[in-house]
Amino acid sequence: MSRIQIDSIRCKGCGRCITACPKDLIAFSQELNDRGYTYVDFTGHQEDCSGCTLCAVVCPDQGIEVWNFKDKQTFVNTAGLTENMTHYCPGCTHGVVHRLTAEVLEELGLLDRAVGIAPVGCSVLAYEYFNIDMFEAAHGRAPAVATGAKRARPELIVFTYQGDGDLASIGGNEILHAANRGEKFTVIFVNNAIYGMTGGQMAPTTMPQQKTTTSPLGRDVETTGHPLRVSELLATLRTPAFIARGSAHDGKHSLQLKKLIRRAFEYQRDNTCFSFVEVLSTCPTNWGLSPDESDAWVESTMMPYYPLGIFKQPEAPAVAATGASHDH
């Protein structure tokens, strides 16, 4: 008999944990918390909880901790994040990507020498959430800032955390050249197929026919091109070491994603050049979908176009983008 503890103050009522729980033990309460969210409660029988931790893994808001049947805590909120509550919308997987990255840094013992670089995008406030030294960079320029920092202090573990507008649009030049120079930092690239922060404009990664405020009739590939597959594009370069794509849309994929992020930081720690992890992430607000529907949309619409997998790694010679090895 395991148990979970839900932090009703942190909870934004996205309901992802309700979907994630294989035994249907979590449900919405009738109450609003101080921030106006309908939080969730553990409503099942205590005996039924197996302690699988999936609810905690999918929670974007560090809202759940888990103890196993021996009352040992098996899911602890990472010391790599501050206790600040994020400004992200309910169900936005930016929060999950933050947590996985912070967990990896903590597990690898890198928190004391890590320097993160926040972009301009919804994750602009990442410096409030990562419990490490952080920069805030101009829109798209994080890879240049990272280059400067890493070259000047190679002992640091430097990473950028960038959205798809930031990295693939305005910062397209910076990321291309940082990758091609083989800068020894890590990039966490959050692809949510939209400009979240500015209210839902088309990104280079927006899906064909996807409606955004600057493609109100749906993205027209005739005039705006096809969605940019950044991982595949960078994988054509000879220099970068590790390029992979994962997804944060459910528990299983989040755990696989964490392994990719871990490898990326291990390569940097071992002084191997440029490592890059793209993450398929949700933007329920600007997609106009519920958190659950958003997670499903990643799987149904994004994943077929943006296959998950490792596109380039040090051990094996470069694989052609189309022949990417799939993780599952």
């Binding site: 305005i170 400009y195 500015t198 404009q201 405020t213 705006t224």
Partner: peptide
């Protein structure tokens, strides 16, 4: 796009085609 002017492009993306014009979202 950039706040607080984004409604200019968001308005014109709908309106310009009606008057035979065109809207391009640049990469920067």
């Amino acid at each position: 796009p950039i706040t607080p002017q984004t409604e200019v492009p968001e308005y014109l993306v709908k309106r310009l085609p009606e008057v035979g014009g065109a809207f391009v979202q640049a990469e920067s």
